[in-house]
Amino acid sequence: MKKMKKLTLKEMTASEQFEVKTQLGRSKANLGRALTNAEQNRIKDMAVNKIMQKRADVIKATRLEKKIAKTTLNTVTFNWSASINTRPAR
């Protein structure tokens, strides 16, 4: 399976961006101090990875649904006699 390229904040929806910012805020509140750049990057990467995993799961589920829909049994059968020309040949 092809690996997805890493998302940037610009490529995310507003709710996904909010989720990343919320994670950063929670971490800052838990530590009771400002985060270092390394901590910010680590937390941001973890949040982005979670979002990418959610997207991959949705893509996988829709792909599976399409595959199931494509392979469902079709009750209409081919009618051979309807395709034969009834007019006699000359």
Rank of each mutant, 00 (worst) to 15 (best):
N30H: 09
K44R: 09
Q23H: 07
N85S: 13
A29L: 07
A82E: 06
N30E: 09
D45L: 04
D57F: 11
N85H: 15
I68K: 01
F18T: 01
T22F: 11
V20G: 03
R33F: 03
K44N: 00
I68A: 10
E16F: 06
K70I: 00
K5A: 08
V76E: 14
V58N: 11
S27R: 04
W80C: 09
L7F: 04
N85T: 12
K3T: 04
K5T: 07
F78P: 00
T75V: 13
R90F: 08
T75A: 13
S83K: 10
A89E: 14
R90T: 00
L7P: 02
R42S: 11
A47D: 04
K3E: 02
A69F: 14
K44C: 00
N37W: 05
K28F: 05
G32C: 05
A34W: 10
G32I: 07
N79F: 01
Q23L: 14
T75E: 09
V20M: 08
T77H: 05
K67P: 03
N74E: 08
P88H: 12
G25Y: 14
E16G: 03
E16D: 09
G25S: 15
N79E: 10
K10F: 06
K28S: 11
L35C: 02
K54C: 08
Q40T: 01
A61Y: 02
T75S: 12
R42F: 13
T22V: 10
N49D: 05
V58W: 00
K60M: 07
V58S: 08
A29H: 14
T36W: 13
M46H: 12
N79R: 07
K50C: 02
R33Y: 01
I68F: 03
G25A: 15
L7D: 02
T13N: 02
L35K: 00
K70W: 01
A14R: 15
T13V: 04
K54P: 01
E11Y: 05
E11M: 04
I51W: 09
F18N: 04
N37E: 06
T36R: 11
T62K: 15
F18I: 00
A89S: 09
N74Y: 12
